[in-house]
């Protein structure tokens, strides 16, 4: 299949520009109209307000906030972060205020923005996922739901994203519980990510986000103990980018859903790589820690790429690296 069938493709299908107009960066994913394809990844952007002192959040394509659970969670004991070559391991443990406090105290801020908000949720059961989705439905200021079926840092957090039957069940339940766009976030900690992607697609997902962190570990030679109290953590940063690009490329050929690429995006060119692999949008994650303006730099880089290559819109880029139909 080609990228032209994707819902998430840009409006124009890639004619070379003749005028000196700025390229059109707009993209629509799962019915969510975004000004541009640059989103912020869950767990790396706080509740948005941490970044307002640095830039105008209205410049973003979309914002995804830290995973929300039924009850508030204090998260894991420190240390929670370990630097590794070209990236970092984290074991935050889904620290969050819980759905009630989120709706009451954190959501109102996002209503003042023109940028759509996607809420990332995690439940301990299929029912809890569905309940959370229901709570967010018809709530002003919520444009969509991202399902965290791939958190490596809580017991059972990975189960829903590594077993296709469970993936199907949870996505199906959420799909039935809400009218909002449903976007499962896939785990890379599987033998074949396309199996999970298909299960999510069959269950009625509107789009897919990928990838979440890769389970990793670092050991301190001095103490002879793992550096993280829970031994393992989720690896993120440029170290995982080639794996993420490969997985987007694989999933793009396996399902027809629009994809949101995530994994070590630091620059505009990194984002372009994901778009070429078949993603219709990207999420900037760990880079937000190194520079609060990282997402803005990525956005500027994407625009510069389109301008440099004379493209009017993202349509010329999305999926361009995929094999042509029939060859795949």
């Amino acid at each position: 299949m080609t990228s032209k069938k994707r819902k998430g493709s840009g409006k124009d299908q890639g004619r070379r520009r003749s005028s000196s107009k700025r390229p059109n960066l707009a993209v629509t994913i799962a019915g969510i109209a975004m000004k541009n394809p640059v989103m912020t990844a869950s767990g790396t952007f706080g509740y948005g307000t941490e970044f307002t002192r640095f830039f105008d959040l209205n410049a973003l394509g979309a914002i995804i906030v830290k995973t929300v659970t039924m009850h508030s969670r204090q998260g894991n004991p420190p240390p929670r972060i370990v630097e590794t070559p070209g990236g970092m391991l984290n074991s935050i443990g889904l620290q969050n205020v819980g759905i009630d406090a989120f709706l009451r105290h954190k959501l109102p801020f996002f209503r003042s923005l023109t940028t759509p908000l996607l809420v990332n949720i995690a439940g301990k059961s299929v029912e809890e996922f569905a309940t959370l989705a229901k709570r967010l439905t018809d709530v002003e200021g919520v444009a969509g739901i991202e399902l965290n079926i791939s958190c490596p840092n809580v017991a059972g957090g990975l189960d829903f994203g590594t077993d296709p039957t469970l993936t199907y069940e949870v996505v199906r339940a959420v799909r039935q519980a809400t009218s909002l766009p449903v976007i499962p976030k896939l785990s890379p900690n599987v033998a074949d990510i396309t199996v999970i992607a298909r299960a999510a697609a069959d269950a009625g997902a509107d789009a897919l986000s990928l990838i979440n962190t890769i389970v990793g570990m670092a050991i301190d030679g001095r103490t002879r103990r793992p550096k993280l109290p829970g031994a393992t953590g989720g690896l993120s940063g440029p170290a995982i980018r080639p794996i993420a690009v490969r997985m987007v490329w694989e999933v793009a050929r396996a399902v027809k859903l629009p994809l949101i690429g995530i994994g070590g995006i630091m620059t505009g060119n990194d984002a372009i790589e994901f778009l070429l692999a078949g993603a219709s949008a990207v999420q900037v994650g760990t880079a937000n820690f190194l520079d609060p303006l990282a997402s803005m730099n990525v956005l500027a880089g994407v625009e510069a790429y389109l301008t440099r290559h004379g493209f009017d819109s993202l349509g010329s880029v999305i999926g361009a690296a995929l094999p042509r139909e029939g060859k795949a």
């Binding site: 767990g43 998260g75 240390p79 929670r80 935050i92 609060p292």
Partner: peptide, 10 residues
């Protein structure tokens, strides 16, 4: 990060 985004330094 140093500004409250990563929740690492609890």
């Amino acid at each position: 990060c140093g500004f409250g985004a990563c929740m690492g330094c609890v």
